[in-house]
Amino acid sequence: MSSELPYDPEIPDLRENDPEDIEDDEIPGTGSVTGSGDAAIPGLDDCADPALCAYTEYVEGAEVEDLPATGEGAEGVEVDVWDALYGVEDPEMPVSIVDLGLVYGVEVTDRVDEGVHAEVLMTLTYSGCPARDMLTDEVERAVAGVEGVESVDLRLVWSPEWSIEMVTERGKADLNEFGLSV
């Protein structure tokens, strides 16, 4: 699987840290992340009234501070990386993956071996997403195509979990346009 890159001890890897121990400024491209996955999702357990087809019910998620990450305030090459990410759409809906809230952070650094290196932290809406490789390949290609970027790492993360709260206002408008009410 090329989509999730092999663990490399040279690269600071947030995956091995306890989320509670990660300082805000260690998370690429974001300020702070709270509610690191332990928080119960409000509304999931209080379905007192049975409803048809509960599976497709849109359940509101916990709001995670500083997510969605949108690239606001980015500088230099990071701006171009964000632009490239905005150009990648979800395989099933005409909405940018950034507006869908799938991108958790971008960090561009200058590395001795790899030159200008872009690291993208992202998640997927669904663990069983059949388009996982297709989408992660597309993201890697899009970022690799940014002028000035010489190497790319895409890290798939599952915490905090994606929820409908992470869709941006523009993402909601795009989804409405597509016929999905959010």
Binding site: R15, E16, N17, D18, P19, G37, D38, I41, L44, Y126, S127, G128, V157, W158, S159, P160, E161
Partner: peptide, 15 residues
Amino acid sequence: ARIRDRVGKIRGEED
């Protein structure tokens, strides 16, 4: 941590 970080996502899809 690698296990812990995935549990929330899975539980959300199990109910």
